[in-house]
């Protein structure tokens, strides 16, 4: 056997278990949703094939358009602040700071909490009538604290996004902390010796070297935005008037509350296509090395 062939076989052996698990637990659910998307089906009794009609209905569905708009807002508005705050926290907590483990844990705790408690607590903080901010506003006379952000269909999605940023920033921090461990300290020291101030060193050396971390976070952020479910479910129930509806919440509502598993399947297929499309788009923009691993 040639070396090349042996190497290829070895690589298959490394990949096989993962691909096996995937074939079963990832491919089948996708096939299931694709199949369902061509049916008028309540999930229990026999469905009838309806061709592409679920997709054409989807195209005209104003709630579906809301989900797309919300995803489009969600992606930049969570990823950028989360990455920025997360990066600064990671920088601060990577150095020899006293109590840094405690800080790290504190900022990370929101990511650990169940979306159920996050939803309930934030509802109580933001409620414009009896909430924490409303009470604080009355006591302090700071009118701007009292906010009906979740009650107004125009602003509700921004309220949810803010809560989401609070929840997941600690995770970005963690990610950047891991990324910072990959940077050769000699490079930074060399730059300092060359007269660069810490700000310049960070901007010119650290940030560019974290490229793969940024890109991974970007991809996870996009996908995380597309699959947001529980937080919305508990915080706003996708309201008011569907203003915070996202693809998974809408698919859930259709499949289980409205008993249209076929329509829900079509929504899920759109979700998968969007996610795969963005991932592929990112390889185009940022070079295939990021995804395929051939960048060296």
């Amino acid at each position: 056997m040639s070396i090349a062939a042996r190497d290829r076989l070895a690589s298959v052996a490394f990949l096989l278990p993962t691909l096996g698990l995937f074939g079963v637990f990832v491919v089948y659910p996708i096939v299931f949703n694709v199949q369902a998307s061509f049916l008028d089906w309540n999930g229990v009794t026999e469905g009838t094939t309806v061709g592409l009609s679920n997709y054409s209905t989807l195209w005209q569905d104003p709630i579906f358009r809301t989900t797309l708009r919300n995803s489009a807002l969600w992606i930049p508005l969570t990823i950028l602040p989360q990455a920025a705050i997360g990066f600064l926290l990671a920088l601060a907590l990577n150095g020899p700071l006293r109590g840094r483990s405690i800080y790290r844990a504190l900022f990370f705790i929101p990511a650990v909490l169940s979306p159920v408690v996050i939803g309930i607590v934030w509802q109580r903080i933001l409620d414009p009538s009896t909430g924490v901010l409303a009470q604080a506003s009355r006591e302090t006379g700071l009118g701007w604290l009292q906010t009906g952000v979740l009650a107004d269909p125009q602003t509700a999605i921004f309220g949810v996004i803010a809560v989401n940023i609070w929840t997941w920033t600690g995770f970005s921090m963690l990610f950047y902390l891991a990324g910072l461990q990959l940077i050769d300290k000699n490079l930074l020291e060399a730059a300092t010796i060359d007269g660069a101030n810490p700000w310049q060193a960070t901007w010119r050396i650290t940030l560019p070297l974290l490229r793969n971390t940024h890109l991974s976070l970007l991809m996870l952020g996009v996908i995380g935005a597309l699959k947001t479910f529980e937080l919305i479910y508990v915080l706003t129930q996708a309201g008011p008037n569907n203003a915070t509806q996202m693809l998974p919440t809408y698919a859930f509502e259709q499949a289980f509350r409205l008993q249209s598993v076929g329509y829900a399947g079509a929504i899920s297929v759109v979700l998968v296509v969007l996610a795969v499309g963005t991932s592929l788009g990112m390889t185009r923009v940022f070079g295939s090395g990021f995804l395929s691993g051939a960048d060296r």
Binding site: V26, I30, N33, A251, F252, V272
Partner: peptide, 16 residues
Amino acid sequence: VFGFIVLGLVLPMSGI
């Protein structure tokens, strides 16, 4: 292969 693996990230539990 990598694209295939990324698929697994996409699926929300409620949909599968």
